[in-house]
Amino acid sequence: MIRVLVADDEPLIRAGIKMILTSADDIEVVAEAANGRDAVELALRHTVDVALLDIQMPLLDGLSALAELGRAAPGIRVLILTTFGERDNVLRALRQGGAGFLLKDTAPGELIAAVRAAAAGKAYLSPTATRHVADSLAAEPAVSRGEEARRRISALTGRERDVLALLGEGLSNADAGRRIHMSEATVKTYVSRILAKLDCENRVQAALLARDAGLSA
């Protein structure tokens, strides 16, 4: 059973997320919080597997709560809840090691899939979320960031770069494999190798690096 904490200062949002998640037979919402401080304390007390944190919360915002959980319990996977207008904060969260992010209007099936992926140790970046991140990156001055990203990916082989470009599109291992005619297991092996070479904690960070470098499939 996947143990989940939901943290959002809006009761209706929490209730909706809880209703969706508990419809899955392998997910249990064991704690709810209306602010970031309580979210950290409850996540540690209830030994949760996945924490869903809203970015904008009183007492302690989602990014600060993410940082505290990273120090106190790095095994807890954190998914960030956000709205369209908070993309800059989302980029910060992903670069700080968050397991992924979800828009608050995410479809129920995608929410459940994201929690399952995070609990399995995978990062989750939905295609919709990827497009929002790409929009943010395109609007930022990115010369120095792009140069650094290109320097880092220069260590990859051509096939590794192909796989990284697909990560940048937010594709799953299975979808990436279909695109480049590889088995899902082979793609998984490539992803592990890419993360090690790029010194990325998860595939979301690798996807952002692909975007910074201007990789396209």
Results as ranks from 00 to 15, higher is better:
2 I>L: 07
9 D>W: 12
10 E>T: 13
12 L>K: 12
14 R>C: 02
17 I>L: 08
18 K>F: 02
18 K>T: 12
18 K>M: 14
19 M>Q: 15
20 I>H: 01
24 A>L: 10
24 A>R: 01
25 D>G: 09
27 I>Q: 00
27 I>N: 00
30 V>T: 15
32 E>V: 13
40 V>G: 05
40 V>D: 07
43 A>Y: 11
48 V>W: 03
52 L>I: 13
53 L>F: 09
59 L>S: 13
59 L>V: 14
60 L>I: 06
63 L>S: 01
63 L>N: 03
65 A>I: 03
65 A>W: 06
67 A>S: 07
70 G>L: 01
80 I>D: 03
83 T>V: 14
83 T>E: 10
86 E>L: 09
92 R>P: 00
93 A>S: 13
93 A>W: 02
93 A>K: 04
94 L>Y: 06
100 G>K: 00
103 L>A: 10
115 V>L: 04
117 A>C: 13
130 T>D: 01
131 R>G: 11
134 A>E: 14
145 R>E: 12
146 G>S: 12
147 E>H: 03
148 E>P: 03
149 A>Q: 00
150 R>V: 08
151 R>G: 09
153 I>A: 03
162 D>P: 02
162 D>H: 05
163 V>M: 01
164 L>G: 05
169 E>W: 00
172 S>A: 07
174 A>G: 00
175 D>Q: 06
182 M>I: 04
187 V>T: 11
190 Y>C: 01
193 R>L: 07
196 A>S: 15
199 D>F: 04
215 L>E: 03
